[in-house]
Structure formats: C-alpha cells, structure tokens
C-alpha cells in the first residue's frame, strides 16, 4: 500500500456499470520527507481511488494499487486499480 492525502471527490456521469454507486477520491501520495515533517503536504503524483471507508478531505489513507485493488469486489471483475484500504489514525516514525 502507499500513503495518500484525500484532496477531493469525483462524480462520474456517465460511467461504466462497475463505477455506479461507488465513491471516488482524488489522492495525493505523500513523500517520506513530508510524512516526517507532518505538514499535511503530499508531493507525489495524484491519482483517483475507490473509497468505501468514507475518508474526508484532508485525511490520510493507505491505498492499494494493481490487481489486488479489485479483490474487495471479488468475484465480479471491476476495472479498479486503486482502492483505499485504511484511514490512517496516527503514524509513529522512528527518527
């Protein structure tokens, strides 16, 4: 998984059937430097992921990419390659 800050939500109209009723969030991956500083900045290349946990704007999530991102929808095949697996409560970084 990678860490990303929620920057906004996406509404599709129209969309392929698999995306009906799904929440899409715009994520900005976080670099280690910004993570250590805890300044809420991202720094990575933005992407869109499916979010079923209800992450709000500004919250940090960990998202899965690749084939495993479609696992939660098993057994039906969905064209999803990024999925929010968890919402971060706190991160403890050793200096």
């Amino acid at each position: 998984m990678r860490l990303g800050v929620v920057r906004g939500h996406v509404v599709l109209n129209p969309a392929v059937a698999a995306f009906h009723g799904k929440t899409l969030v715009v994520l900005e991956p976080v670099t280690m430097e910004n993570l250590r500083a805890g300044n809420g900045l991202g720094g990575g290349k933005s992407l869109v992921a499916i979010d079923e946990l209800g992450a709000a704007k500004g919250q940090m999530v960990a998202f899965t990419e690749g084939r495993e991102a479609a696992n939660p929808f098993w057994p039906n095949a969905v064209p999803v390659d990024a999925y929010c697996s968890l919402i971060v409560d706190s991160i403890n970084i050793q200096p």
Partner: peptide
C-alpha cells in the same frame, strides 16, 4: 521506518500490523 495505526480499514485487515 515506523508503524501505522488505523481503526477504520477493510474488514479483512483487522488485527494486521502495518
């Protein structure tokens, strides 16, 4: 480099160490 604490997560990840 450290650990992540997350209460809200996918149900299959309950009890996992991140």
């Amino acid at each position: 480099g450290g650990t992540v604490v997350a209460a809200v997560k996918h149900p299959t990840l309950d009890g996992c160490r991140f």
